[in-house]
Structure formats: structure tokens, C-alpha cells
């Protein structure tokens, strides 16, 4: 398996654990700051990543969502499913970058 495919597998496996409970959202600074749109919170980011891999999603909106994340790890602590949200987002940036280091 190539590095990029391995990275994809790692990220996807983790984000698919999301059950949409929303317990991550109340601590997210970026969700709160402007529109309150789920797009700019951890639950939205995690599920957009899953959508990107599984059925496709508008890349512009996806990037807006992913690159506004502070990677401050507040959400990671809240997730009852133990999803490493901040790390998945960081890894996904790596993926979007064409897998600098894993290609």
C-alpha cells in the first residue's frame, strides 16, 4: 500500500467512528466565532473528511473548513468515541498537500 493510501486509511478509519453526538462542538472556538455553521466545528470537519473520501464534497468549502481549524485539541478531549479529531485534521492537511512525506 502506498503512503498516501495508508494515510487515507488511517484518517478514514478514525473519522468513521463519529456517531454525530455533537459533544465536541461546545468547546470549539471557530464554530462559535462567526456563523455558527457546523461546517466550522469539529463534527462538521470530521464528517466532511469522511464525505470527501467516500462520496466527494466541494473542495473549496472543504478547505475553508479544514484550514480554519486551530488544531487546539479542545474537541479531542470531548469525543466519547475517542476520535483524535485534531490529529486527523492535521493529517488530512498533509493528505491535501499530496502527502508531503508519505507519497
Amino acid at each position: 500500500m502506498s503512503g498516501l493510501a495508508e494515510l487515507r486509511r488511517e484518517i478514514l478509519r478514525d473519522v468513521l467512528k463519529c456517531s454525530y453526538c455533537a459533544m465536541c462542538e461546545w468547546v470549539c472556538p471557530t464554530l462559535d466565532v462567526e456563523s455558527n455553521n457546523r461546517l466550522y466545528g469539529p463534527r462538521g470537519r470530521v464528517n466532511l473528511i469522511a464525505s470527501y473520501f467516500r462520496e466527494g464534497v466541494d473542495i473549496g468549502i472543504l478547505k475553508e473548513s479544514i484550514y480554519t481549524c486551530l488544531v487546539c485539541m479542545a474537541c479531542t478531549r470531548q469525543c466519547p468515541a475517542g476520535i483524535d479529531i485534531a490529529e486527523d485534521i492535521r493529517k488530512f492537511r498533509l493528505f491535501l498537500d499530496g502527502g508531503n512525506g508519505v507519497g
Binding site: 488544531v71 492535521r90 493529517k91 498533509l94 491535501l96 498537500d97 508531503n100 512525506g101 508519505v102
Partner: peptide
């Protein structure tokens, strides 16, 4: 690290 540029890092 934050930009995910692991090869460079």
C-alpha cells in the same frame, strides 16, 4: 508540523 508537511519536518 501544523501545515502537515511531514516529509520536510
Amino acid at each position: 508540523y501544523e501545515f502537515g508537511l511531514m516529509d520536510d519536518l
